[in-house]
Nucleic acid binder design. Structure first.
Lengths: 118, 118
DNA sequence: ATAAAGCATAGAGTATAGTATATGCTTTAT
DNA sequence: ATAAAGCATATACTATACTCTATGCTTTAT
């Protein structure tokens, strides 16, 4: 599929997709048999990657961090202990954030109650 | 307390505190009795506000959104239905994000497992 | 008394994550 | 055949949230 279809399937703008491609987070392939253009083709794996990006950026991870996750998930063949430690730290970060979430949700609920009582 | 103490108590840099003050998220008061300087004094409410800011920014809310939360929580006396709707929408956002969190945590745990198996 | 540290304001600079514009070539539709 | 739409690359622009630097005045320590 070309970039337009990929955009429609993921909900990301073509600009954003190209931005992620420039960062090396996804990679389209040009068809060697076609010489008239250099259109890039994307596959199901690209969609999977973009869905991971969408999820992880909601969590607040930077694109640089998400890139590391993608590499470890899809490309890495060797296991580096520092990579493992990195992700274990990220899991802890998520747990910490969960607590902030609950507190903020709680505050928002109280704010709503306060408004409704008036 | 002055800005230095406030910084130490909250863990935020003096620059960041002033940045938030310029955005109108907190407010220090100058002592009217002192004419030689215009040092700003901060109270316990400021700490409370900054703690809310820290929590809510972890959740991914923008400073503009957090400012609205602070106003509704500490200053607002009248209840606007649109404010209530805003916060109810924010609560839903948090619930949505929670789902992304669980998915991302799940992915990270799988990545860790994958690395450990190698 | 004088140097060091603290405070305030203003403005510049940085990082991240897009978003938009310009240009030029290619493909598709009429 | 030609106009419209799609694709690629490059560069510029924007927004958010800081972070740093410069300047000058005030307070504190020695």
């Amino acid at each position: 599929m070309l970039v337009n279809e990929l955009s429609k399937k993921t909900g990301l703008s073509i600009h954003t997709i190209r931005y992620y491609e420039n960062l090396g987070m996804i990679k389209g392939l040009t068809d060697e048999k076609v010489t008239s253009n250099n259109y890039k083709h994307y596959d199901a794996n690209t969609i999977e990657r973009l869905e991971i990006i969408i999820e992880a950026r909601e969590v607040g991870f930077t694109l640089a961090e998400i890139k590391k996750i993608l590499i470890s998930w899809f490309e890495t063949t060797d296991s580096k202990p520092e990579t493992l430690e990195l992700f274990q730290a990220k899991i802890k970060e998520i747990d910490d954030k969960m607590r902030y979430f609950k507190q903020t949700k709680n505050l928002l609920e109280k704010v709503c109650e306060k408004i409704q009582k008036q």
